[in-house]
Amino acid sequence: MSEQYEVEFIERGDREATFLVRGVTPAFANGVRRAMLADVPTLSIDEVRVVENSSVMFDEQIGLRLGLVPLTTPRDEFSEGETVTLALDVEGPGTAYSGDLVSSDDLVSPAEENVPIIDLKEGQRLEIEADAVMDTGKEHAKHQGGVAVGYRHLQRIEVVGDNEAFEQDDPRIVRGVIEAEGELVPAESFGNDLTNRYEGKEVEVHDVPNAFVFDVETDGSMSVDDLVLAAVDSIGDRADELAAAVQL
């Protein structure tokens, strides 16, 4: 990887962000993407103790649903393999939601309050105790912190001339973010169609070498910032491990 790189945010939210990274190789960009998906540990329910389940679903099915509820995972507070206990006790009629889960640790709570777990009718009851364990996405997809993570090349648009008069413009669809006149423009701002932005012009689209636009969305277990930093740290840790192992 090159020494010089730059990061520029196009959109920055807590759970969703778009940012441009310049000066990294495609291999590194993909490494970051894969680390975000598979190597950042998050807490997820891994074992359920069923005290009472008079609902219409099997214990195993409810366990699976609980496992998929994202739990907030503060960075650097838990190490892999650590557990947190949660409890749920809901009596029908009504719906058991993820927000009904009570955590033993103040730092850990369901990232979304309104994930339905099961609809309970009169006289039905669900009482469980569950252990959430810290693990990575490569072990099970429920531990994936990043849910929609991808990148694409930054594309530079150059106007090379005018179209001939009365010629019908064919749509020229681009996605992501383009670089035009030295500015970064999200393609959504002109309906993803270059003919809207450059009417009657002939344009050329080139990939900018070693510049990648990342689109990152998390499941709510951590912020985008934490996810990206944890992913990059995990690559660094593994590089150190490799260096120590081969004694460079």
């Binding site: 359920v48 069923v50 699976l64 429920k142």
Partner: peptide, 12 residues
């Protein structure tokens, strides 16, 4: 009737 024991279920 279902047993009153606490049943442990691993989440797969």
């Amino acid at each position: 009737e279902r047993s009153r024991d606490i049943k442990t279920v691993p989440v797969e």
